[in-house]
């Protein structure tokens, strides 16, 4: 089985974003690399197999309930799943909980590209964080929406100035678009 595909499958359930949207970030493989560098392969396999089996059997709210029961409340899989979710939304890897590390941490973790500490995964990861589209804006410091867009009513199309009849020209000149 393609483990990257499994990673996207579990990520879709965790994030609430569909697979196309996740792949469009261009950052999934990097998250996958971080995950597989820091979490023992056996635990990742267990998570993927469990998630795929649940998704095969359940849909919608039933899937969410089973996901909580089988994965999120599991002391071995839950912290890993939450870290995957936090990577997608916040672009950060958070150090796994101490109790998890004592029980399951990779014992022979050598200094490598990644360490199990709090870190921003990469510049691009920051820019692709899903929390920004979720809250209806753009990552602070990137994906600039354009001059004056902050004056628009939230949810309006951000890429063009609305020249509709609702806005007298003088208002537009003042920048008071509403």
């Amino acid at each position: 089985m393609d483990k990257l595909a499994d990673f996207y499958q579990v990520s879709v359930v965790l994030t609430g974003y569909n697979r196309s949207r996740l792949m469009a970030t261009g950052i999934g493989e990097e998250y996958f690399e971080v995950l597989t560098s820091l979490v023992p392969g056996k635990i990742i396999d267990e998570l993927f197999i469990c998630s795929r089996a649940l998704a095969h059997e359940y849909k919608g709210e039933a899937l969410n309930e089973k996901f909580r029961e089988q994965i999120l409340s599991n002391d071995r899989l839950g912290p890993v799943a939450r870290n995957i979710l936090k990577m997608w939304y916040l672009s950060l890897w958070y150090q796994l909980p101490q109790s998890w590390r004592e029980t399951y941490g990779v014992p022979s973790q050598t200094p490598g590209k990644y360490q199990d500490i709090d870190f921003v995964i990469s510049e691009n990861a920051y820019i692709q964080g899903l929390v920004w589209p979720a809250l209806g804006s753009h990552p602070m410091g990137a994906k600039q929406p354009g001059y004056g867009t902050w004056a628009f009513k939230p949810g309006e199309e951000l890429t063009r100035i609305n020249l509709g009849t609702d806005h007298p020209v003088s208002d537009i000149e003042e920048g008071n678009l509403s």
Binding site: W132, G136, S137, P145, W150, P154
Partner: peptide, 8 residues
């Protein structure tokens, strides 16, 4: 919704 996290 007042469109927080936008603009200067």
């Amino acid at each position: 919704d007042i469109g927080a996290f936008r603009g200067p």
